[in-house]
Computed example of a mutant assay.
Amino acid sequence: MLILQLAIILIASKIAGDISVKLGQPSVLGKLLIGIVLGPSVLGLVTDTTTLAEFSQIGVILLMFIAGLETDIDEFKRTGKASAFVGIGGIIVPLVLGYAAGLMLNLTTIESWFLGLLLSATSVSISVQALKEMNKLKSREGTTILGAAVIDDIIVILALAFLMSMAGGDVNLGVVVLKKVLFFAGAIIVGWKVVPWILKKFAPLKVTESLVSAALIICFVYAYLAEFTGVAAIIGAYIAGVAISLTDYKHDVFEKVETISYSIFVPVFFTSIGVTAEFGGITDHLVLIVILSILAILTKLIGASAGAKFAGFSWNSSLGIGSAMVSRGEVALIIAAIGLESKLLSQDMFAVIVVVVLVTTIVTPPMMKSFLVKKSKSHG
């Protein structure tokens, strides 16, 4: 079954992506929407299996690894302040308004803060693809978005640990913070000293594609250790990509990894987002879904755009950066799953959040395109 499903996903995602581009939208939008069509909600040709989920996980890890490989570290240093403004602005507004919305929905204080925190999450894996298609990944805007995503992830995960310890979960805040600090410190030291050495040792081996295998080993180990220490796997993969981007092997690794990723794993990731959408019983909560979707889109857009404007970007660039932070993706879904498990989210609320996350993911690429392409035209 899996082999047939992969064939269906690949053919459908490539055709849908092409149609999306012809309609003036990023190809990723077509791939997301075709996932909904192929999935249980419409045609039922593809089902959400564990194996498909694992393929999808590899896809998002490779996508962020490629983004790391394409990062210009000098530009990254220059945009550090802007990334901090965007990341923090994009957390404060959704957190506060999400909390207020929770209180209006008669949630308890701690459940309301949890909802606010959930709306503060960001996943830029979709935005990375849209930036690549617009040739903006290496621009000042692109680098700011990637930096802000890392900052957002760290703050939200630490705030989540704090909230869980308040909620009476057996979470030791000191241990949580220590694990994150150890991961980032270790990741930077290993990236600086060990990664170049590993690549140098693997490159001359008398086996096919030893260099690319070494790069993928580094990517997967970083992603695993990130997840193990409570940081998102995609952040680990991104840092691994940045580490390799500083070596002489950057271009060789990039070309081969891009080929592997985009021929199978990345299309599966985009399409499976749509496949996992469950629309059963959605009509009972339609009003809540609409309200929370609007809240999710506007709070992130306003908060992150304000941060970008504060950092000196033009309005179009600021709104483009804000748009890129709107997608909540797998980071919000992981937090929602934790909320469901610890009884901070009801089963119904969890189902609503899953649809809201899907909505934020689908609207992100067209919003980014409308602002960032406008900006290039006004400059051109």
Rank of each mutant, 00 (worst) to 15 (best):
L2F: 13
Q5G: 13
I11D: 08
K14C: 07
G17C: 04
G17H: 03
V21T: 13
P26A: 07
S27W: 01
V28S: 02
G30Y: 04
K31P: 00
L32M: 08
L33G: 01
L38Q: 01
L38A: 06
V42P: 11
L52F: 08
Q57P: 02
L63E: 00
L63R: 01
M64W: 00
A67G: 12
L69Q: 03
D72P: 11
D72C: 10
I73Y: 13
D74Q: 15
F76Y: 15
R78T: 15
G80S: 15
K81Q: 13
F85Q: 06
F85L: 09
G87Y: 08
I88V: 15
I91H: 08
I92K: 07
V93F: 10
L97H: 03
A101Y: 08
M104G: 07
W113D: 00
F114P: 14
L119I: 12
T122F: 04
S123E: 14
S123H: 08
S123F: 10
V124R: 06
S125Q: 02
S127A: 15
V128Q: 00
L131P: 02
M134E: 00
N135Y: 00
K136E: 04
L137G: 03
L137P: 03
K138F: 03
R140W: 03
R140M: 11
E141G: 12
T143K: 10
T143A: 14
I145R: 04
V150C: 09
I151Y: 05
F162A: 15
S165I: 05
M166P: 03
G168M: 11
G169F: 05
L173M: 14
V175I: 06
K180S: 13
V181N: 10
G186A: 15
A187N: 12
A187D: 12
K193P: 02
W197N: 14
K201M: 13
A203S: 14
V207I: 15
S210W: 01
A215G: 15
L216R: 09
L216W: 08
I218Q: 07
C219T: 15
F220T: 13
F220R: 12
F228K: 12
T229Q: 02
T229S: 14
V231I: 15
V231D: 00
A232K: 02
I239A: 06
A240P: 08
G241D: 03
V242A: 04
D248H: 10
Y249A: 05
Y249E: 12
D252L: 13
V253P: 01
E255M: 08
E255V: 12
K256I: 05
S261V: 06
Y262F: 12
F265C: 04
S272E: 05
I273G: 04
G274T: 09
G274A: 07
G280S: 15
T283V: 10
H285N: 13
V287G: 13
L288T: 15
L295I: 14
L301C: 06
L301D: 00
L301S: 05
K309T: 07
F313D: 01
S317N: 10
I321M: 09
I321R: 04
A324F: 05
V326W: 02
V331L: 14
I334W: 04
A337G: 14
L340D: 05
S342I: 09
L344S: 05
S346H: 10
F350R: 09
V354E: 08
L358W: 02
P365I: 01
P366V: 01
H379V: 06
